[in-house]
Every structure is written in C-alpha cells, then in structure tokens.
C-alpha cells in the first residue's frame, strides 16, 4: 500500500510523471488489453479503447482518492470505456449492442489477432447471443475470473442479481454449444 502511495505521488510529480506513466503502462497494458478485448472483440477497437483508458488515467490521476486500489480504479475506467464504446458504435450503425457484437464475432475467423479453435469461436458466438448485461457478467466472471463482489463494485449491481445473471448465461451458453 505504501509502495502504491509512492507510485501515485510519482505520477503526480511533474519531474517523475513521465517515467512513472511508462511503468504504469508496462505493468497494466496486458491485463487491461484482455479485459477490453473480451468486451469489444475487435483488436483495433481494443487498441483505441485501451489508449483512451490510459490517457484518462493519466489526466485523472489527480482525482484518484485512493479509496480503492489503483488497478481497481483503472479496471473500472477501462470497463466503462469499453461498454460506452460498444454502445456508441452500435448506435452509429443503428444496431443494438447485441447485434453489433454478433457482427464482430462473425468477423473473428478472419481476424489475425484471433487464434481460437472451433470451441473458442463457438463460445464467442454463444456469448454474443446473450443480452448485453448477461454478456458482461459472464465475461467478467468466466474470462476475467472476478469474484461476484468485485463485479458488483465494477457494475454497481447486487451480488444476488449477478449470480442469477451468470447462471442464466451459463445455461444458455451450454444449450447453444450442445445444439451446435
């Protein structure tokens, strides 16, 4: 905790800010990339969202009150950025978020940044058929391995509702994979 406090001070200090920011990017770029990618699917879109996330973190570090861990705070920013990105993209194309994500999954086979086998593709297709909120809960729980409490903090939804949402999502995905 003391180390984190010192690191935040380095981010706030004009003399050490740049070096501290480079360290921040080096430490968190991969986990944040994978979080964003599971939500937005496409690599180029992930790159845009990830860069925006880091810029927001850099500019907003003065507002970080230290009530949560730095990574949790960044994780929340990344999550919100990704969700907003999908919603805006879908709106621009006059689609629902679900339809937009289904389109993204359809393009995965030709994506150089996807190395999944048949089962990975099938799982992505099954997830894309879920309602937006269920998709998000499933992705955070199954791929990101967050606890219900952590997801509750990120999304502001009760643990009970999250459990129900996750179990429904799992059942639908299992049905889809079984039938296909």
């Amino acid at each position: 905790m003391q180390e984190e406090k010192e690191f935040i001070e380095a981010l706030l200090n004009a003399k050490t800010r740049e070096a501290a920011f480079r360290e921040l990017v080096a430490n968190y770029q991969k986990p944040l990339y994978h979080l964003i990618r599971t939500i937005v699917i496409n690599h180029d879109d992930t790159d845009d969202v990830l860069q925006n996330t880091f810029i927001k973190v850099f500019r907003g570090i003065e507002n970080f009150k230290g009530e949560s861990k730095l990574y949790s705070w960044m994780y929340r920013i990344a999550c919100n950025e990704a969700i907003t990105f999908v919603q805006q993209k879908a709106k621009k194309q006059a689609l629902t978020s679900e339809s937009y994500l289904q389109k993204q999954v359809e393009n995965l086979k030709a994506d150089d940044y996807f190395e999944g086998e048949e089962i990975q593709l099938k799982l992505q297709k099954a997830i894309a058929l879920l309602p937006e909120k269920q998709q998000l809960v499933f992705k955070l729980k199954y791929f990101q391995e967050l606890t219900y409490e952590e997801i509750s903090n990120q999304l502001g939804t009760s643990v009970g509702a999250l459990k129900a949402s996750y179990h429904l999502a799992v059942k639908k995905i299992e049905d889809f994979i079984h039938k296909n």
Partner: peptide, 18 residues
C-alpha cells in the same frame, strides 16, 4: 480461453504511442 492475442510488438508500440 478467449483465443484473443496481441503480439509483443504491439505492446512495445503502444508504450511509444502513449
């Protein structure tokens, strides 16, 4: 697993770009 990947080159470039 998700099947999503990104090369180390990408992350190196991301650092520079940011």
């Amino acid at each position: 697993e998700t099947g999503f990947k990104a090369s180390d080159d990408y992350f190196d470039q991301l650092q520079t770009s940011l």
